[in-house]
Simulated assay, not measured.
Amino acid sequence: MEALTLLSWMFDSLLGLGLLWLAWWTLSSPDLFKAIVLFISFGLLMALAWVRLNAPDVALAEATIGAGLTGALLLAALARLDPKHETRTTHEIETKSDVHD
């Protein structure tokens, strides 16, 4: 029984660290498609965390709304973006402003 508690604790810790890692990479990704895919995977992992907290109703809502619907809407919005007007990263803006100074 003690080994099961230790294994459960280790899984929950790994789940929490995975959520933090995914959140960081989602927010810091310069590629919009990659950020959306990471956001969807974060939502699915968050649904698993809600299941671990014995909240299956919240987990179902997170999976359907947070990962599924929002992810699909973000992908649809990305597909409608004009490829000629790509968003520039902060580094590109700073580099271009340094050239003109």
Rank of each mutant, 00 (worst) to 15 (best):
M46D: 10
I65Y: 05
V58Y: 06
A59Q: 01
T95G: 06
L60T: 09
G18I: 01
A76P: 08
G66T: 04
A23E: 08
S41P: 09
D98I: 01
A49C: 05
F33K: 13
M10F: 11
F39P: 00
T95H: 09
H91M: 14
L19T: 04
D98W: 13
V37R: 02
G18E: 02
V37C: 08
V58M: 05
R80Y: 13
P56L: 00
G43D: 04
L4E: 01
F39D: 01
F42T: 01
L7M: 05
S97A: 13
D31Q: 07
L17H: 12
G68V: 03
A79Q: 09
V99H: 15
A3D: 04
A47L: 05
G71C: 09
A49S: 03
L14V: 14
D101R: 15
W9N: 07
W24F: 15
I65F: 03
T87G: 10
A67M: 04
V99W: 15
A49N: 12
L74F: 15
S29I: 00
A35Q: 14
T64P: 00
R52M: 12
L78H: 14
L22V: 00
L81V: 04
L69G: 03
A72L: 15
A59P: 03
H85R: 09
A23F: 15
H85G: 14
M10T: 11
L75A: 11
I93M: 07
L27M: 09
H85I: 07
M1I: 07
A72H: 01
A67R: 08
R80T: 11
L17Q: 11
A67T: 10
W25Q: 11
L45W: 02
K84W: 12
W50P: 06
T26L: 14
S13G: 13
T90D: 06
M46G: 06
L75H: 12
E86R: 14
I93L: 10
S29G: 03
A72D: 00
L20G: 08
G68H: 07
